[in-house]
Design a protein around this nucleic acid. Structure first.
Length: 638
DNA sequence: GTAGGGTTAG
């Protein structure tokens, strides 16, 4: 124990007080130069740690001269204020000139996202090494400070140092986060220039960047060329395939990874679970779950939440709820996932009840929680509840509605036939409108056959997205229903003038633990011949039961007969025909579709559910449809 | 002795 001399104490006091402001800690180094020297003299006789206590009990600090002490102590900081306190101690000890200590200090500031403090320290440094630069570049990257990150990276290169396998992944990350493929390619050139393309960290970051920028082929090429593919690069690649809609390939890759002797971890399993969710394949989901239990992965918040989503998207609300109930730690994402699951299945009341449970357990809802709730209300016809939540969200929780929230409210009004209120809401909105918003209004006009508002909605939606064939189909359906055949023809004409972006539609289902995938007019399935024969019989059977093909769902400029042929080979119908061949009589059928089920297929499936006495569940891009005894409660179609 | 790539709800 050492009692301060008065002057030393004052010097320290200056440091202690000033370290509370961002730049002051470094500024404090200057006036402290002299007194610290005194302090050094005082304690020069002690090589070991010395505790200095002031006579004023307000200040009681331990000062150490050994850099190792701070390297050990800094990571234990629990707040930025603690870092600042240690910063002051380092300062009064004159240890700021030790770059190892200073870099760690810099890192601690960035880890608390105190980027201003970090930069103040960084810019005050007389000397910087590649560690300091990479911590600073990484700090900006993790904080989303794109411009500062690039600026610092440029400065670093200008200072004469070479970019390395630490700095580059940070810069690549920024390109990924901002979806800046062009900049990503520039960085890729730099990577090659410095011969770092084989580094695991750099390569994995590049693969991730390419995949998030939707150039999966480039990502795969890079991945295939990697000499050492570790767990993380595999995980990135698995996630990339799931993201681009090829979940089957993602799961295949997971198998391949294990065959190469790589042992998955929790994060890898989250990616596997996501792939199963995308596939909606119950068998795969169960296998993944069993694997997770067998290998004793901890069901942490992230993995647990992913599993809730997986089961919900496989059509198993009960399993999703079991996982939800078994989770000890739940965050707002977990609750929102479960609320979203109910919403997705058209179970508005359950979604709402869960929301109130969430509130009583003290979780604060966010923008996405409310989006799921509004979605639940719109698909369950709970107009008043939806409108109440829409105002609650803004007034009680300060969540500013984005265009997706508005879209739900338009849907809410629209489905219940309050079309002018929906239009009014859109017209009075101050935020930017998108095609989804107008599309919701257009969809509502189809349900209620409102031509006038439909034309208004169609004009706006086609202005924003002229290349989407779905909008023309909707408008044409509305005209057709009103018997306005000239306008149907005009719509088709309008469409043929556009370059249409066709997202290939596909449907798939799981039979005997295998995924069977179909696209329109598909003949690739090994049992294709049987499927088409079955479909022919089904069509005859259904026409007797009153099915009339709705060729308005096909908008190609072709004759009626050709339209019928296209219509009857829609992927949903092929999938249904296959299911009827390959599954036991009376068993429920579950089909997945990457786009929305078309109106004709919707009526087709409704009829199948009654003439074949089957429960048919269809998951499309929007929701789950439960067809039972000729009824689907979705309210999407007439 | 100080710096690094992958994860959950829409």
């Amino acid at each position: 124990m050492f009692k301060f001399k008065r002057q030393t104490f004052l010097a320290f006091k200056v440091g202690s007080i000033r370290l509370c402001s961002l730049t002051a800690a470094t500024a404090a180094a200057e006036p402290l130069a002299q007194p610290t020297h005194t302090l050094g003299e005082i304690i020069s006789g002690y090589n070991s740690d010395i505790e200095l206590t002031s006579s004023n009990t307000q200040f009681s600090h331990t000062l150490f001269l050994d850099p190792g002490f701070y390297l050990h102590k800094l990571p234990k900081s629990r707040s930025v204020n603690q870092v600042k306190e240690i910063h002051a101690q380092i300062t009064v000890n004159g240890l700021l000139k030790n770059l190892v200590v200073t870099n760690k200090l810099l890192y601690m500031y960035t880890s608390f996202r105190a980027i201003g403090d970090a930069f103040a320290l960084f810019s005050g440094l007389n000397e910087r090494d590649p560690f300091s630069w990479s911590v600073m570049i990484g700090g900006f990257a993790k904080n989303g400070d794109v411009l500062d990150c690039f600026r610092t990276f440029r400065e670093y290169i200008r200072s004469g140092d070479s970019p390395n396998n630490y700095t580059l992944p940070f810069v690549i990350r920024v390109c990924r986060d901002t979806n800046d493929l062009e900049m990503g390619k520039v960085i890729h050139h730099i990577v090659c220039k410095f011969g770092l393309q084989s580094d695991s960290f750099v390569a994995a970051a590049l693969v991730d960047m390419y995949s998030k920028c939707k150039v999966i082929e480039d990502a795969k090429k890079l991945f295939d060329r990697m000499p050492n593919r570790d767990l993380i690069s595999w995980t990135v690649m698995i996630g990339a395939y799931t993201e681009c809609g090829n979940a089957n390939e993602a799961l295949a890759l997971f198998e391949q990874m294990q065959a190469e002797g790589i042992v998955p971890d929790n994060v890898a399993m989250v990616n596997v679970v996501n792939a199963c969710a995308k596939l909606g394949a119950m068998h795969k989901a169960k296998l993944a779950h069993e694997y997770i239990l067998r290998k004793k992965f901890s069901l942490n918040v992230v993995l647990g939440t992913a599993m809730i989503d997986m089961y919900a998207k496989c059509g198993r609300l009960d399993c999703a709820r079991d996982i939800f109930d078994s989770m000890r730690m739940k965050n707002v994402v977990t609750w929102s996932a479960m609320i979203g699951a109910y919403a997705y299945h058209g179970r508005g009341m359950e979604a709402l009840n869960l929301f109130y449970m969430m509130l009583s357990s003290g979780i604060i809802p966010n923008s996405i929680t409310f989006l799921s709730l509004l979605y639940a209300c719109s698909h369950s016809g709970m107009v008043d509840d939806g409108l109440h939540l829409f105002s609650l969200m803004q007034e009680e929780y300060g969540v500013r509605p984005n265009v997706k929230h508005f879209t739900c409210v338009v849907d809410l009004y629209g489905r219940s036939g309050r079309l002018s209120e929906a239009l009014n809401l859109i017209e009075n909105m101050t935020i930017e409108k998108d095609e989804g918003l107008w599309g919701a209004l257009l969809g509502a006009c189809r349900i209620h056959g409102h031509v006038e508002i439909a034309e208004k909605a169609a004009r706006s939606v086609l202005e924003l997205q002229p290349e989407n064939p779905g909008h023309y189909v909707l408008l044409s359906n509305i005209y057709a229903r009103a018997g306005r055949w000239q306008d149907v023809a005009k719509t088709r004409e309008l469409m043929t003038h556009q370059r249409l972006k066709k997202v290939p539609g596909s449907s798939w289902l799981e039979v005997d633990n295998m995924i069977h995938k179909f696209s329109v007019g598909d003949h690739t399935h090994p049992r294709s011949k049987e499927i088409y024969e079955k479909l022919k019989l089904l069509l005859e059977e259904l026409e007797l039961a009153g099915y009339v093909p709705d060729t308005n769902c096909v908008l190609h400029d072709i004759d009626e007969e050709h339209k019928r042929r296209i219509l009857y080979t829609h992927s949903e119908k092929l999938a249904i025909a296959f299911a009827l061949i390959a599954t036991p009589e009376g068993a429920p059928i579950t089909i997945m579709k990457n786009l929305r089920v078309c109106g004709d297929c919707h009526s087709f499936i409704k009829l199948i559910s009654v003439v074949r006495k089957r429960l048919i569940i269809v998951r499309d891009a929007n929701r789950f449809h439960h067809f039972e005894e000729g009824v689907c409660s979705c309210g999407d179609y007439w």
